[in-house]
Amino acid sequence: MIENRPWLTAVRHLVLILGIIVIGLPIWIALVASTNTSASFVSGVMPMWFGEEGLNNFRRVLTNEGRVLGVGVSASWMMWNSFIMAMVIAIGKITISILSAFAIVYFRFPFRRTCFWMIFITLMLPVEVRILPTYEVVASLGMLNSYAGLTIPLIASATATFLFRQFFLSIPDSLAEAARIDGAGPMKFFKDILLPLSVNNIAALFVILFIYGWNQYLWPLLITTDENYYTIVMVIKRLMTAGEGNVPWNIIMTTTVLAMLPPVVVVLVMQKFFVRGLVEQEK
Rank of each mutant, 00 (worst) to 15 (best):
I171Q: 11
F190H: 14
V265E: 06
L169R: 12
Q216K: 06
M187P: 03
T151A: 01
K191M: 14
F167D: 10
F189L: 09
G213L: 07
S82R: 05
R5S: 10
L209E: 10
M260W: 08
A203V: 14
M79F: 09
T122R: 04
N200S: 14
G54W: 02
V257S: 05
L99I: 09
V265Y: 06
K188M: 12
E128R: 05
V15M: 13
I21S: 06
P263W: 03
V265I: 15
E244P: 09
V235A: 01
G142Y: 01
T231N: 00
V266Q: 02
L144F: 05
G243N: 00
F162S: 08
L31M: 09
L175K: 09
V11L: 15
I171F: 10
S97E: 01
P262H: 04
K191V: 11
T255G: 09
Y212H: 13
T161D: 08
I2P: 08
M78H: 02
G149H: 02
I84P: 01
L197E: 11
L258C: 02
R60L: 06
P248Q: 08
T254C: 11
F109T: 06
V71D: 12
L221P: 01
N81R: 01
F120H: 13
V71N: 04
T134A: 11
R108H: 11
F189S: 15
I181G: 05
R59N: 04
D192N: 15
M1G: 12
R59M: 01
L62P: 08
L222V: 01
L14N: 10
K283S: 09
L16I: 15
A158V: 07
T9M: 14
T256P: 02
R165F: 07
A148T: 11
R60I: 07
Y135C: 07
A90D: 07
V269G: 02
M48W: 14
V247D: 04
V275Y: 02
M234A: 00
S43N: 11
R165A: 12
I232D: 00
K237G: 05
F168L: 14
L268P: 00
W80V: 09
W219C: 13
Q271M: 03
P153K: 08
Y135N: 05
G245F: 06
N36L: 05
S43E: 10
P110T: 15
S198P: 11
F210T: 10
I96L: 06
K188A: 14
I236N: 00
W214D: 03
A101R: 05
F167A: 05
S174L: 11
R12N: 10
P153Q: 04
A179H: 05
E282H: 12
I23W: 07
M187Y: 14
A158C: 07
W249T: 02
Y106H: 12
G51H: 00
V265H: 03
K188L: 15
A33D: 06
I21W: 06
L99P: 03
G24W: 06
V247R: 07
P110A: 13
S100L: 08
A103N: 13
H13A: 11
S76E: 12
M78N: 01
V105I: 14
N81Q: 00
P248H: 08
I91G: 02
I171G: 04
N145R: 01
W219L: 09
E244W: 13
N201E: 10
D226P: 00
I131H: 01
V138Y: 03
L197S: 10
N57W: 00
A10R: 07
T255N: 04
L205I: 10
